[in-house]
Each structure stands twice: as C-alpha cells, then as structure tokens.
Design a protein around this nucleic acid. Structure first.
Lengths: 246, 246
DNA sequence: TATCACACCGATACACTGTATCGCAGTGAT
DNA sequence: ATCACTGCGATACAGTGTATCGGTGTGATA
C-alpha cells in the first residue's frame, strides 16, 4: 500500500476533504476536476459501464495508474461524478410564501439535471450522496421552506422535503429505465409506451392479466413529463393536506 | 454464435417466453430456477457484485459455461432475480372500500420484499421489470383499486398506483443507500442517523450549511419505518385530495 | 450387438476490468 | 556534480463476461 492511499483509509467519504495533490506545473496538467469531467463525458455518451479507469485515463492522455494520485478508488470517482450532477441543480426559487413553487422548482431542477446524465440514476442506490454540492442542495431545499407559513414545525419541513425528494428519485428511476428499454428497441418513448411493444402485447394476450390489459388499452397514456407533473401535484396536495388549517 | 443463443436474439425481454431446455434426467439436475436461487443466495449474502457466473456455477457444481444453456446473458439472470423478488410480494388485500388499506398493503409488501433483498434496489434503474411476477403484481395493484368508490375513472387509478409505486421505489432506494453506509462504518442505522457520523459533523461545522445543521440538530430523527409511513400517508392524502367529493 | 452421428459439457482462450507492485527517470537539495 | 527522493506508469495479477470448439457420452440405427 505504501503512500498511495494517503488519508482516510477506512472511511470512503473522506474524498470530499482530502486535498488534491498540488498540481505540479509541467508534468501534471491533471486535476480531480478534469478527471471527473472526462468521466462524465464518457458516461453521458455511452453509459456508466463505459466508464473504466483505463478509458478515462486514455481520454486524458495518461496511464491508468496516474489517476490513483487523485482518487483512491473507482468508487470515489463515481461519488465525484454524482456530486457534479448536484452542482447542476439550480437552487429552488421561492417567491414569497409560495412553498409549492419552491418544492416544484426543486423537483424540476433535480429531474432536469438527472435526465441530462442518465447514469445518475444508477448511482442512487450506491451510497448516500454527501458531497458538498449534494449538501448544498439539501441546505437550499430546507432553507426554501424555512419559515413558510404552515411550516413552523421543523418536522413538517423534513417530511415535505423528504417526500418530494423520494418521489423525484423514484420517478427518475422509472423513467430512465423506460427510456433505456425504448432505446434498445429502437422506438422512441412514446411509441414504446403505446404498447405495440410486441412482447408485452403477447403477454397481455395470454389473458392472465385482464385488468392490466384493459388499462393498457383504455388508459390515456400521458407522456413522461405530464405523468411526473401529475404525481408531483399529488404529493404536493398531500403535503398541503397536513398543514395546519390556514 | 451457433445454437447457443437460440430464440429471441435481439430482444432481451424474451427470456420470459423462451422454454427451458428439457431437463435431461441424469446429467443435468440444473434448472433456471435453481440457478436463480443460487444467485439470489449469493446476492443476499454478499451483494450483487458478488454474483458472477463463475461463482453461481460453482455453487451448483458446474462449470461457468454450463449456465449458458439456461441463460443467454448475465443480464437475463439479473432479470430473473428481480422477478423472483416480485414473486415474494403478497397480493394487496382490499377490504371493502378501503382503498387506502389496499395501497398501503401493496406498498408494505413491496418494501418488505425489497428489504429482504437489498440488491433489488440496484436493479431498478436497469430496465423496466416485465417478468410474469412483476406483471402479476401490476395486475393485482390495478385490480385492488378497480371499482373502489372515487376511482371510477381509469386515469385516477393509474395516477394513484403510479404515485405510490414511485414513492416506494424512491424510499427504498434511499433507505438502502443509508443502510449500506451505516454498515460500512460499522454503526447501526440509528447511530448513523444520529449524526455522530464524524464526516458529516465536520462538514456541518464549516458553517456552510446553517439550515441543514440546525435541522440535523433539532429535528426528531425518526427511524426508517416511521419515516416511510409518514411519507406514505402524505402520498395517500394527496391521492384522497384528488378524488371526487364523496 | 456393434456402429455411427449427434448433442452438449466444459476446458481453454480472449478482451477487459480494478488495482498492487516497483524499476526508472527526472527533480531538488546538498 | 552528486545524491536522495518522489512519483509516473509499465507490468502484473486476479477477476469478470462470454466465444470457440475438441472430446465424450448418449441414443438411434444397421
């Protein structure tokens, strides 16, 4: 092991605090940020499984081992990538007492950033995101509701922010899974949803799923955006219902 | 390629329809089900990244290549594993008009099954789950609300089921990420949440996240179960708010 | 019963992964 | 001018998913 993995051996979250190696002028035009940027480019283009230390290094004209001066593990790179996504989420806007607007802008900001980087969904189940940008987003979320009318109790705010976040995460997960499925079959999302999707059609034709079949036939299949919006409204209504009578 | 990958070459969802190879009596005491069971045991014990075709095959006293008679890809194995989790979800009970109870039991059943198999969360972003058991769960969910008072319109049912599902998925994702983080630090979940977690404490001490710090200090950090319950109630309230006046 | 044809198992191989090791070159100090 | 050292990256290793294909055991046929 020697001195390769320097500080914070046991605790993987310590990337956020460990200083970068001083970027020596000539021989090392590398930085954690450049590495992360290269990795994100790869992931955006070809998915997370295309991100290998070798490829990232190659994109930076370096040998794979070079990266270990800036990262001590591939997991760290993934953490940094996730945090970079958080940095793209704009702070929620709160106009006066419009807490719904605040939560809504938070939700949309998160969703937009995540849809720009589909691989983000794959990093959600890994470990909690605690990088500086993720924390900043947390800070901004809470601050956006802090002091809004009806949100006097701290636990009310927690519940609201948590529920919205959880909804957004779940919705993302699902939409991205669908997007990928659609892409591998070559259809666009709309076509796919309309269930000319042959396997599903055959499965439904077995008669084992009568209700499902009826719904696939009769429901007005909205696009992903409006479905997201409808669910979000639903969640916001639920939050509103638990506020003290104004 | 020859005859190894037989039917449904292009479409990866076709596992569900492709028949198993006829289990020849003596030399082949293997079956898709045994393979999946072995893989699930590995994943339950050591996480999804411990599931390699070699290890699964070894657990069954077979060479790695043997599995390719039953699967054409590791992805298929993962799909089968995911569907096995769905088979553990009990059909939602609906007592009379109690649609809340139906959705609640659906949510809990899903959550319980997923917490029994933490790796399930990692499979959510992969591709949509369309195995027979997943479809059966879909069927049961819709059927549970079908005809309940207030749910006359098909889109109302869709919205309700979708929103609950999405909430459950998101909540799972998050709790499992937390569980893992807690485990790698050796603490139990409760301890971890109570933020003696040293990195977080240091980060909050920087003063860059004042609201967050206050919340971590003052909020009553409920355990995962009650948080889930509270959020679920919130979502159910939101659904209730959108029903036609009774 | 002896032979043949065929099916299939799994050893071998390949390209790829993350990462440990360590020789060597290049730098700064003496 | 010499030395000590630092840190880069070639090499190596154990592991992955999967393609290939030789050998073997089986069932059918003569």
């Amino acid at each position: 092991m020697a001195a390769r993995r320097e500080a914070g051996e046991g605790d993987p979250t310590l990337i956020w605090e460990r200083p970068e190696p001083p970027s020596r002028p000539a021989p090392s035009p590398l930085s954690r940020e450049r590495i992360v940027r290269a990795a994100i480019e790869l992931a955006d283009a070809d998915g997370l499984e295309a991100v290998s230390l070798r490829k990232v290094a190659a994109a930076l004209d370096a040998g794979p081992m070079r990266l270990y001066g800036y990262l001590s593990t591939k997991e760290e790179l993934l953490d940094l990538m996730a945090d970079a996504v958080y940095s793209e989420i704009p702070p929620p806007v709160r106009a006066g007492d419009d807490w719904r607007g605040a939560l809504r802008s938070l939700a949309h900001g998160t969703r937009d950033a995540a849809l720009r980087h589909e691989w983000f969904a794959d990093l959600l189940s890994g470990r909690p995101h605690l990088g500086p940008n993720a924390l900043a987003r947390g800070e901004a979320s809470l601050a956006a509701l802090d002091g809004a009318p009806g949100f006097e109790h701290i636990d009310t705010i927690m519940l609201a922010v948590n529920t919205v976040n959880v909804y957004v995460i779940g919705a993302l997960q699902r939409q991205i899974a669908d997007l990928r499925a659609a892409r591998t079959t070559g259809m666009d999302e709309r076509e796919w949803q309309h269930a000319s999707y042959p396997y599903l059609a055959r499965m439904l034709a077995t008669g084992r799923y009568p209700t499902l079949a009826r719904f696939v036939r009769d429901a007005s299949h909205a696009d992903a955006d409006s479905t997201f919006e409808a669910g979000l409204d639903c969640v916001l209504d639920g939050i509103a219902a638990r506020l003290p009578r104004p």
